[in-house]
Amino acid sequence: MTLKKNDHLEFYRQMVLIRRVEERSAELYQQGKIGGFLHLYIGQEAVSTGLISVRRPEDRVITAYRDHGVAINVGIPAKQVLAELLGKETGISKGRGGSMHMADVSKNYWGGHAIVGAHLPIAAGMALGDQYQGNKGVTICMFGDGATNIGFFHEGVNLSKVWNLPVLWVCENNQYGMGTAVERASAVGEIHKKAEGYGIPHSRLDDGMDIMKVREASAAALEQVRSGKGPYFLEIVTYRFQGHSMGDPQRYRQKEEVTQWEKTDPIGIYNRYLVEQEIATKADLEKVEEAVEAEVKEAVEFAETSPDPALDTLFDYMYTDKEQNHG
């Protein structure tokens, strides 16, 4: 697919939107307005944005608990993401899920799963459902490097090959499972090679900070699955940013940081690419950034002013048959 200027601006918008939402989330967390855990996607924006940009609507998406970025990429409005983080009834999961459990089934996005690796067998089952019903879609299952050391990973990946299921396994290798580096937790340093043990074709993208490369690798991997050859395993190397100046909303305008930012930040890398390739001007991109600023400001206001779930809805959604919700 040849990308038009507007496509690029849309990807850029999504990446900046993820960054802004995450930065605001960190602040709201510091203010005690967000409870529980908060896993930020800052630094990994190119992975999800690039990957989701090549999926088709019939392709299902399921991921782990670092799910805010994916939520935005599949098209959940920032205000529903932030409202969920604040536990509001207007949140995408009606305040029942929180940071780790965001889904929008209408967008074929199935969450947001917080037990490491447990969603891999579920993803295999979703692909089985599509295979069984003759649907065309691919199930895109994202997970971290840490998930590849747990039994669920091996059971799910094995099953996908045994049944030749249309699954794209995407390992987002951000190089740490919590605080434990890959080489301290995984017997195999190059994670994609684990797929070898299950006879599944695999590859690794070393530069997951460049959205154009992520798109290229993801599109090729998806095509392989779509062609009916069964599952494919794609490892994308990326990294989480620490809470340093990269998170500073002012950095776009601070010259001394720009050089560093253009080299290591997925948004900076993309920004430089778009300008150097004369796809967009600095002014175009600043316009996008300003629009995102406004959207996030509005989204935070929406979230903060939204109602909490009514206490008498505590038992709603336990069972599909509400009559049984007190059993």
Binding site: L120, A124, G125, M126, G129, Y132
Partner: peptide, 8 residues
């Protein structure tokens, strides 16, 4: 797990 996925 696959049962859950197929049910979903």
């Amino acid at each position: 797990g696959a049962g859950i996925g197929a049910a979903l």
